[in-house]
Amino acid sequence: MERNPKALPEQAAVENGEYTTYVDEVFGAVVTRGPINDAWRLTLWANCYNEPIFTSLAQEFDVGRDEFNVLSCLASYGSMVARTICDVTGRPKNSISRAVNRLVERKMLKRKTNVNDRRESLLILNEAGLRLYERVLPLAVNRQQLMLESLSKEERESLDFILNKLMRSRQHW
């Protein structure tokens, strides 16, 4: 097949049956060797984790990303205010607020208004919320295990060390 000189690189690659090679070249230039390659790799890894998990949670359990974040924080730590969930997850206040409202409507958690500041409520996970979290958690854990299975035990420990070190400096970002 003769190459069309006016074709875009991806069109030429598709025409020649070399599209996978072309994508690998672009991936290398942008994700592996680009000027912000660390950010790209972390983002890509997170996207490849988040998109399938949150799609499954929404379809199977009617639980959105921020609802999962709220459930996870409350199940892992205990009662807290929404502002703390925002600070821990890096999610916007309006997203967490909508998730909290939806979980309250679904009777998965309750609010206890702060008598000193009526704008603030303590969020308390109830038994139904905990059961829901326990049902959805295995999907998230299994996806994480799948995505990390290529690492040896020592590499996994190194990754944990590095990620923990990065997270300790998060207030400076």
Rank of each mutant, 00 (worst) to 15 (best):
V14Q: 12
S152L: 08
D62V: 10
V14W: 08
I85A: 00
G64M: 08
D62R: 08
R102M: 02
P9N: 02
V23A: 07
F61L: 07
T43A: 14
V88T: 08
L159A: 15
S152E: 04
S150N: 12
L57Q: 00
T84H: 09
D66G: 00
P138C: 01
I53S: 06
Y19E: 10
S152H: 04
M147Q: 14
Q59K: 13
N116Q: 10
V70G: 01
L44Y: 11
E60M: 11
Q144S: 13
Y19V: 06
F61N: 04
W40R: 08
R106P: 03
C86V: 02
E25T: 12
P52S: 05
L103Y: 02
R65H: 09
E60I: 12
S76G: 15
S56I: 10
E51Y: 11
W173N: 09
E67Y: 02
V23K: 06
L42A: 13
W45S: 10
G78D: 07
C73S: 10
R131W: 08
R102V: 00
R111I: 04
W173H: 11
F54T: 06
K110M: 07
Q11M: 11
P35W: 15
T20P: 01
S121K: 04
R156A: 15
K165Q: 13
L139K: 09
E154C: 09
F54Q: 01
G129F: 01
G17W: 03
Y19R: 07
V136N: 05
F27V: 08
V81R: 11
L42N: 09
F68V: 02
T21H: 11
N116K: 13
V115A: 14
K110S: 06
N101Q: 13
C86Y: 01
